[in-house]
Design a protein around this nucleic acid. Structure first.
Lengths: 121, 121
DNA sequence: CCTTGACTTAGAGCGTACTCGAAGATTTAT
DNA sequence: ATAAATCTTCGAGTACGCTCTAAGTCAAGG
C-alpha cells in the first residue's frame, strides 16, 4: 500500500461519498480525471480529496450539478477565469445566506406550532 | 365569487403551490380532502390555507413526504395523538437546527474559498 | 344557450442525482 | 499460482417530488 496515493475506497471513506458517486462525479465532469496506476485504477492524492470535499460542500449547500459543472469547467483555466469563478461562488454564497435565513424563519414557525401543541395539553 | 371560499387557483396563488401540487398533496394524504361545491370542485377555506402553509413549511425545511404523511395521519385524531405529533415536530426541529448549523459551517468554507480566489488576483 | 376557461380524475412522464448491475480486468493475500 | 477482493466501463434502474396529459364535467359572462 502506497503512502502517497489512495484507492477509490479510501477516498470514499475519507470524503463520505460512495465510490459510485466519486466515479459519477468524474464521469459528468465535476472532477478532472484522477490519475490512474498501471492497471488503470484510480489513485487519489491529497489535492483530489480537497477538491472533492469542496465539491461536496457545493452540493450539500444545494448547488445543482449543472452549476458545479460550470464551475468545474472554469477551474482548469486558472487565472483567466478568476472573475467568473468569483462571480459564481459569490452568487452561490448570497443564495445560501438567503436560504439559511428562510430556514431560520421556518424554524420559528415550527417552534410556534410546537408551543401550540404544548399549550393544548 | 364567494367571499368565504377560494378556488384551487386562488389557493394556489395564496400559498405559492401549483394547483397540480395542491391536488397531489390531497391525493397522497398530506391534506385532508378539501370540501367540494355542488359540482365537485374544491373550495378552500382559510383553515385549509393555514394547513397548506404549514405543510409547505415542513416540505421547505426538508421533511420527506412520507414523514408528512405520518404527521398528517395524526392530525385528524386530535388530542389522542398529541404526544406523537409533538415528538415528530420536535425531532424535525432538532434535525433542522443541525442542518442550519451545517449550512452555516459550509458558508464559512465557501467564503474562505472566495477569499483565496480574491488573494490570488 | 353557448362559448370559454377552469375544474375533475387517474395515470403516465419527467428532472435530478445518484445507485446499481454486468462482464471482465487487476490487485492482494495466501 | 490462485483465490478473493477490488477495480474498470457503461448503460440501466431507482427514489423522490412533482408535473403534465387526456378525456371529460362544470361555471361564469354575454
Amino acid at each position: 500500500m502506497d503512502m502517497e496515493t489512495l484507492t477509490i475506497q479510501e477516498a470514499s471513506s475519507l470524503t463520505g461519498l460512495s465510490a459510485h458517486t466519486l466515479r459519477y462525479y468524474e464521469r459528468v465532469g465535476l472532477l478532472e480525471p484522477v490519475t490512474r496506476n498501471a492497471g488503470g485504477h484510480r489513485r487519489y492524492i491529497q489535492a483530489d480529496l480537497e477538491k472533492i470535499k469542496f465539491l461536496n460542500c457545493l452540493r450539500a449547500t444545494g448547488m445543482p450539478i449543472r452549476r458545479i459543472q460550470e464551475f468545474a469547467s472554469l477551474v482548469p483555466q486558472g487565472r483567466a477565469t478568476l472573475d467568473a469563478k468569483l462571480d459564481l461562488l459569490e452568487s452561490h454564497k448570497r443564495d445560501l445566506q438567503t436560504h439559511i435565513q428562510e430556514l431560520e424563519h421556518m424554524l420559528i414557525v415550527i417552534d410556534k406550532k410546537i408551543q401550540q401543541f404544548r399549550q393544548a395539553t
